[in-house]
């Protein structure tokens, strides 16, 4: 369970940092009337939707770190045979990176109000995103043809389950991104979709980060890293 505890410790430090600014040691009964002076404490200037997405990403992060925790615990048993990494995963990773970059590009283009190029960047991001998912399916097929079936070995089971879960999250993101792109194609201006794109970009970068961690996990680098940490600790 160390992975999830580390993740929660990170979250806790964010929460503590935030709480430190909320005057939690003040004595509210002495502060009647002081309204306007506190008004900027009542809400953050960050868009509410962004905060909502941030909280949601914390939940998604907890979900994947729990999967990773389970992966590490289960990996300790004797019947574990690591799964080979299909080459196509490298291509998929590249696609997701490109998708993330183009979305970031779309975000800054939206800020500049450059509608035309933004449309292009959004489409590129959508297509590479779909490309990632298709590639993931190819990776599954490749493994199945090579005889790495779901139930044969826990490493296989985890691979299919976690990539599947990640794929579902990407799919959800694609639906939203598709909707935003659709709106842009129907003529909405950068001004109108600016927030949507920003939210998509935030989600996309996070899912890319999750994917990179998962990739490292399946490729075995994460294990080496964990071993190093363990040696440092003991």
């Amino acid at each position: 369970m160390s992975a999830v505890l580390i993740f929660l410790a990170l979250l806790a430090s964010i929460i503590i940092w935030w709480m430190a600014q909320q005057r939690l040691t003040s004595k509210p009964w002495l502060e009647a009337e002081k309204v306007s002076s506190f008004s900027h404490f009542t809400r953050s200037s960050i868009a509410t939707e962004k905060i909502g997405l941030g909280v949601f990403l914390a939940v998604v992060g907890a979900l994947f770190t729990l999967f990773i925790s389970a992966y590490f615990i289960r990996m300790g048993s004797d019947d574990w045979w690591a799964i080979p990494i299909p080459r196509v995963l490298w291509v998929n990773t590249a696609a997701l990176v490109v998708s993330s970059i183009t979305l970031e590009l779309a975000k800054s283009l939206a800020q500049q109000g450059d509608d035309e190029t933004m449309k292009f960047a959004l489409l590129a991001s959508l297509i590479t995103g779909i490309g990632f998912l298709v590639g993931q399916v190819f990776a599954w097929r490749e493994l199945v043809f090579a005889g790495y079936l779901l139930a044969d070995n826990p490493a296989n089971s985890f691979f299919y389950m976690i990539t599947g879960m990640h794929g579902l999250h990407i799919l959800g993101g694609l639906l939203v991104l598709g909707r935003t792109t659709g709106k842009v194609l129907q003529g909405k201006t950068a001004q109108q979709v600016h927030l949507s794109i920003e939210l998509c970009a935030m989600y996309w970068h996070f899912m890319l980060l999750v994917w990179l961690v998962l990739f490292a996990l399946f490729a075995g680098w994460a294990n080496d890293f964990v071993d190093i940490c363990r040696q440092l600790l003991t």
Binding site: Q22, S26, F41
Partner: peptide, 24 residues
Amino acid sequence: FTMGGLNYVVTVLQGRARGMTLMR
């Protein structure tokens, strides 16, 4: 629950009336 929970948390963070500090 996650959909509802996001609401409860973010409403507390962002939906408070003017003057409603956390300690109030």
